[in-house]
Each structure stands twice: as C-alpha cells, then as structure tokens.
C-alpha cells in the first residue's frame, strides 16, 4: 500500500504546525519522520491516521484520496507513544478490539490475537490485566493491537520514546526484523537519529513544520541538505562561511600517531573511538578511530582528510516571513 501526502498544511489556532509537506512512501517502504520536538512530525502522523484534518492538501492511499475518510475507515494502524491501552480490557480484549469492531468472526479474531501476540513476543499473555504490564510489554501489546487489524499502513509515534536503555535497543531491532518479515508500509516518528537510521529505509527530516530533507540514511549522512540538518544529525565538523558551510564527516578524518595536532578527547562508542583533535591553527575536528590501539587524550597526532568525505552545503537561515 503506497501513501502520498500532497501539499499538506495544518494550522491550529492560527499557528502553522505543518507547512506544505509532500512525500511519498512506496508499498513496503519504511519512512522515518525525524525532527526535534515541535517540528510537526506527530501532527503529520495524525493527518495520515485521519485524526487531524489538514487545513490544506491531500492524503492518498494507493492513489485514492482519503482526506475526508474518517479514521475508523482508513485501515491504518497507529501505535501511540505511551501505548494508550484500554484499561477496562485485558490483553486479548485490547489486541482483539480492532478485529471485533470491524466485524471479524470470533474464531478468526482469536487466531489473529494469538498471531499478533506471537509476533511481538508475548504469546500466551491473552488474559493478563493491562495494568500489570511493564512499559516495554505495554508497548508490544499496543503494537500487536495495531497489527491485529491488518493495517494497510502502520504508523508509530515515538514507539520507543517511553523506554530506555537495553530494552529500547532490543525492541528497536525486534521492530526492524518484524517490519521486514511482514513487508509492511511503515511511517515512524522519532526525534532520535539512531532510531530513524535503524528503522527507516528513508528519513524525512522536519524543521518547523517543513520538510528539510528526504533521503536514505546514507545519502543524509553523505549530503545533508544544509548546515542545520548536518548538525541535527550529529555531525560536528560543520564550518559555516557566509552562505556556504563545509561539512566533514568524522569517518573521513584519519588520525595517525605523531604530528602537530593534539587529541582533546577520546570516547569509546562501541567499536569505534570518537576523537576530538585540536590542530595547530587552533581549529577542532572530530574524527573516529577503528584502530585496535587508538590514540588517547593528550597524544600528539597528525590528521589527514579524505576529500570524499567533505561536502559543501548551503547555510540555513530561519525564514521569518510566510
């Protein structure tokens, strides 16, 4: 099922929340909507689900305009940030809710509930009280509830936002495996760059209600649309000069022992060590080392930059008008 947004505006109480957002998600594609809080990403999700009518623009499913179709007829699954389970129903009651209200027969419904719970790793929890679920379990039940309706498009609103640490990481890789297995069309909102890169085939970066860039994670990393996007992605070697900025990816910065530069900080991040190096002209540069014996803080090093990892981008200026 493909999804298209065409020129969507949302204005609430006179405030533009979303402005002129157009994007296409192919059938089976996973799109991440990435942006800081207040960038309008959750509102876009609500527009797709039919919970928020757009002020202007259209929502199309498989080329059919569904802008005026109410949420309960859109066949779209939505997983809220904090699960929003029905407190008066047990796990099976929650997961089976969608099939029941859409008239799925009892036997089929039970099968779907069992299947959805198995998919999220909670097989056999049908009769648990939702009040006894942990945060991670509640989120899995919410996902199972959305899956049990066999949605044409699955929407996830910061599904891992309420979780932390190893649980978050585990659920993230579970989700990725699940989406691939089901070849679902997924739109997924997050403010976490790592999550967006992990779960999205493509990533839409949102800034103040507008689409700043829409690209695959690799393209985003290689060619950010402007200095703001580069910084938002976590790139630190961004040097602005007038209307242009130079972005140097850290993996293009090769650090070797001996030389005129000094390591200011060295932090291990999994299999790589992130280094900040001060060069003799006083400028600082971030690089990574994959060496078995990486340089430490205070070491003298030399720096070499791979030109393939350097890109010139425009400097973004906040627009005051329109």
């Amino acid at each position: 099922m493909s999804l298209t947004l065409d020129g969507v505006d949302v204005v609430l109480d006179g405030q533009p929340i979303v402005t002129d957002v157009s994007l296409e998600v192919a059938a089976g594609e996973r799109l991440a909507l990435l942006g800081p809080s207040g960038s309008g990403k959750s509102t876009i999700l609500r527009v797709i689900a039919g919970l928020q009518p757009p002020t202007r623009g259209e929502v199309l499913l498989d080329g059919r305009d569904v802008t005026d179709v109410p949420p309960h007829r859109r066949e779209i699954g939505l997983v809220f940030q904090d699960a929003v389970l029905f407190p008066h129903r047990d796990v099976a009651g929650n997961v089976g809710f969608g099939p029941r209200v859409t008239g799925v027969a009892d036997g089929e419904r039970e099968a779907r509930v069992a299947e959805a719970l198995a998919l999220v790793g909670l097989a056999g929890s049908e009769h648990r009280d939702v009040a006894t679920l942990s945060g991670g379990e509640a989120q899995r039940v919410a996902l199972a509830r959305a899956l049990a309706t066999r949605p044409r498009v699955l929407l996830l609103d910061e599904p891992l936002g309420a979780l932390d640490g190893p649980l978050r990481f585990r659920l993230q890789s579970d989700l990725r495996a699940l989406f691939e297995e089901l070849s679902l069309t997924v739109v997924h909102v997050t403010h976490d760059v790592g999550e967006a890169f992990a779960l999205g085939d493509r990533v839409a970066v949102l800034r103040a209600g507008r689409l700043a860039q829409l690209a695959s994670p690799d393209e985003l990393w290689a060619r950010p649309a402007d200095d703001w996007v580069a910084r938002f992605l976590g790139l630190r070697n961004v040097v602005a000069d007038g209307k242009r900025a130079t972005v140097t990816r850290p993996e293009a910065v090769r650090v070797r022992p001996g030389g005129g530069a000094v390591v200011v900080s060295a932090e291990r991040d999994g299999s790589v060590v992130r280094l900040v190096v001060r060069r003799d002209d006083g400028s600082e540069l971030e690089g990574v080392s994959t060496d078995v014996a990486p340089p430490g803080k205070g070491d003298s090093v030399s720096v070499e930059i791979d030109p393939a990892g350097v890109v010139e981008v425009p400097v973004w200026h906040e627009q005051v008008s329109d």
């Binding site: 039919g50 309960h72 809710f97 509830r145």
Partner: peptide, 24 residues
C-alpha cells in the same frame, strides 16, 4: 487518546461510545 486509539482500530463513533465509553 483512548477514543482516537479506538477510531484508528476501526471503531465508528457509535462503536466507540458502546465499546469504550459505556464500559468505562
């Protein structure tokens, strides 16, 4: 949000009242 959750799961407004608001 409970009502919204019910709506995206396919419950019509009447159904939301019956399945969600009345039991609650």
């Amino acid at each position: 949000r409970l009502r919204e959750a019910a709506a995206v799961l396919g419950a019509s407004p009447g159904r939301v009242r019956r399945e969600l608001e009345l039991p609650l």
